[in-house]
Design a protein around this nucleic acid. Structure first.
Lengths: 213, 213
DNA sequence: CGATACATTGAACAAATTCAAAGCTGGTGG
DNA sequence: CCACCAGCTTTGAATTTGTTCAATGTATCG
């Protein structure tokens, strides 16, 4: 498979090594809403998302899903579980048709981890995940609903204009009602005006930023 | 310094390398409540806690501190900031007198990161941090105050018996009032009885576990 | 047109914090 | 020895933030 060669993780491998890697891996095709793994599952494969996108979430005591992150190709998905040999800490669901490279983790570790090219990239990937989790904590623990919304609008205006209230609410882990009320509030405060379809016609980024920082 | 040799991270280094490492590092002594770094600071050193313990926290919009984790020696403290070259995502305060090895990060990366012994240990450390953050998310986003308390009692009974309500509350990011009320509730439900000083006299671990899992 | 999904609004509710007051407890100094 | 003080703990009441539930409004698209 030439695809492996294109995975940033493995570009520095020799052809021999690539062939060896192929022998311990397979590509899985998943359809929309299919679950890659559930929170609590024992990890066997290292998953690398090749195409499509994934939604990572946890389930709280009420049974509702808490959105953590959306993953895009190409990258490791939940290597923490493999590295620490613990169950997956969250569930991953396909947001559309996805292709995933599944690598037998035990064999990968024993055969490839000494390779400095690979280990450096693993470090980068882990550090990236850590940053994501740190942001999740900021969003969910530090910010109020209003602050989350303000932050989302400022930092992701294109998404804000594109998505429906229900979708945004689900990303922010708030209810559509709260989003609606908060947007109404921003409007009366003259901080934000939106046309139909969330098209932003006036935005006081200064004030919005002040709400969350 | 023979101390560096004892740091798990660097045990596999040659004497020459140790000497080189010494030349780009220094040991800092900090006193109780002293701040190692503040959230938002630019990282310059890689910090390795040698003795004492650190409290890592974020500050929310109300100005109150959200406890994230307590660090014990020996280990990296907030390497994420160095690796990703971003500001510290949280603040670190000494819980007692501390000694910290500070390593010039730029020189460390350029001189030592190719070393596979070191990179493997960095991977371990990062994976460990990721696990911690994942647990923070579980605690703060998924669990209710009651569930947090139940979990703490089951998983850290010795700490529960040792610490005061105010200290436990601060670890769990709840108010002492909430803790007090919840313990009273557990008592009326016959799930938990404590003598004076939190000494547990009766505990229904089964039921407690059911509250948080 | 009509159906279905999405958005808005109000009212009730829930969880936890805040504020205030009162009760304990343990150590200290007279 | 014990009275007192400082710091915890407990309890109640009010408040805050956001969710839930229900009703109504508004698109949009076959």
């Amino acid at each position: 498979m030439k695809r492996i060669k294109k995975i940033p993780f493995f570009t520095d491998l020799s052809d021999d090594e690539i062939r060896q890697l192929e022998s311990i891996s397979s590509v899985g095709a998943y359809h929309t809403k299919e679950i890659l793994f559930y929170e609590g599952d024992a990890p066997k494969y290292l998953h690398i998302l090749l195409s499509g996108s994934l939604r990572l979430y946890k389930t709280n005591f009420k049974g509702t899903q808490v959105f953590l992150h959306r993953f895009y190709p190409i990258g490791l998905v939940a290597e923490l579980a493999n590295f620490e040999n613990i169950p997956y800490p969250a569930s991953a669901e396909c947001m559309g048709p996805c292709e995933v490279l599944r690598i037998d983790y035990e064999r990968l570790e024993s055969d490839f981890f000494k390779n400095p090219n690979i280990s450096l990239k693993i470090i980068k990937s882990l550090a990236g995940k850590l940053k994501i989790m740190s942001e999740v904590v900021t969003n969910e623990v530090i910010l109020t609903a209003e602050a989350k919304i303000a932050k989302f609008i400022v930092e992701h205006q294109e998404l804000f204009e594109k998505l429906k209230n229900t979708q945004i609410a689900s990303i922010l882990n708030i209810t559509p009602e709260t989003l609606s009320r908060t947007l109404a509030k921003f409007k009366t405060q003259e901080i934000l005006h939106v046309d139909e379809h969330h098209k932003v016609s006036h935005i006081d980024a200064q004030s919005l930023r002040a709400i969350y920082s």
